[in-house]
């Protein structure tokens, strides 16, 4: 893959917490319209990588380029304003507000881009009919979907999702995967940090495997999961967890 047309490029990202190395030299590139899953066993550095991308943490070394701009030193809200939308592992919609107020708060966070992806997501997730409901009345999976819609509200170029299907039923997970795949097919770049292998199998064109704070493997889902070393560090771990 050529990095020249990458929308997001991370080079040599390092992050230490005290003496614990959470990320050591992560290189990562994402093209426009690409849907990428970032997987890895617990402690592989997925969360650190995510927080480095959205700016909650600053890297000790390395840089991040987004849409041709170096965003390494930018604060989270500045990155969002440049066109990155993101959601968290946990439900963090504003429970005291209605669905519409949540979306309105998301819309006015900065200059708005094209909202075609937002419209697609709102319709596909079936939230358009529930605008007047308080967010606290939505079930868990719809709150997750609401958060995805909020992240898309201002028409970002890149969507960063941290375990978007955590706590969802298989049917809900499949629906999420379907919508995200459609959005990527429409040209949206999406990076998903994920645990759920069923979800990853369904959506991913390319999978990046993190291990011990570095990129361990990268390739198609079939390629990556066929590798013995990947199975050992990651899939073996899943078996243990399942057992």
């Amino acid at each position: 893959m050529s990095d020249g047309d990458a929308l997001l490029r991370a080079e040599g990202l390092c992050k230490r917490f005290g003496g614990v190395v959470a990320a050591q030299s992560i290189d990562f590139a994402l093209r426009r319209g690409e849907l990428r899953c970032v997987i890895g066993p617990n402690g592989a550095g997925k969360s650190t990588f995510f927080s480095l991308l959205c700016g909650i943490q600053r890297p000790d070394a390395g840089r991040i380029v987004f849409d041709g701009r170096d965003i390494t030193r930018l604060k989270p809200f500045q990155r969002v304003r440049l066109g990155i939308g993101l959601t968290f592992q946990t439900n963090r919609a504003f429970h005291a507000m209605t669905v519409a107020e949540n979306l309105e708060t998301a819309r006015r966070g900065g200059a708005a881009g094209d909202d075609v992806h937002f419209q697609t997501a709102l319709a596909s997730f079936g939230l358009a009919a529930q605008l007047e409901r308080p967010a606290s009345a939505l079930p868990h999976h719809e709150l997750q979907w609401l958060e995805i819609c909020m992240a898309l509200r201002r028409g970002p170029l890149l969507l960063l999702l941290d375990e978007p299907t955590a706590g969802m039923s298989p049917a809900e997970t499949a629906r999420t995967a379907e919508v995200l795949t459609a959005l990527a097919a429409d040209g949206l770049a999406i990076a998903v940090v994920e645990h759920d292998i069923a979800f990853v199998r369904q959506v991913a064109q390319t999978v990046t495997v993190l291990h011990q704070g570095a990129v361990f493997a990268e390739g198609s889902f079939a390629e990556v999961t066929a590798r013995d070393d990947v199975r050992r560090i990651y899939l073996g771990h899943v078996h243990e967890a399942a057992a």
């Binding site: 809200f77 969002v80 304003r81 963090r92 429970h95 507000m97 107020e101 708060t105 966070g109």
Partner: peptide, 17 residues
């Protein structure tokens, strides 16, 4: 509304821009 959003979840509000 933004002020209340910050009270409820500061980081979430920041990450909406």
């Amino acid at each position: 509304q933004v002020l209340m959003a910050i009270r409820e979840d500061t980081l979430r509000t920041e990450l909406l821009g």
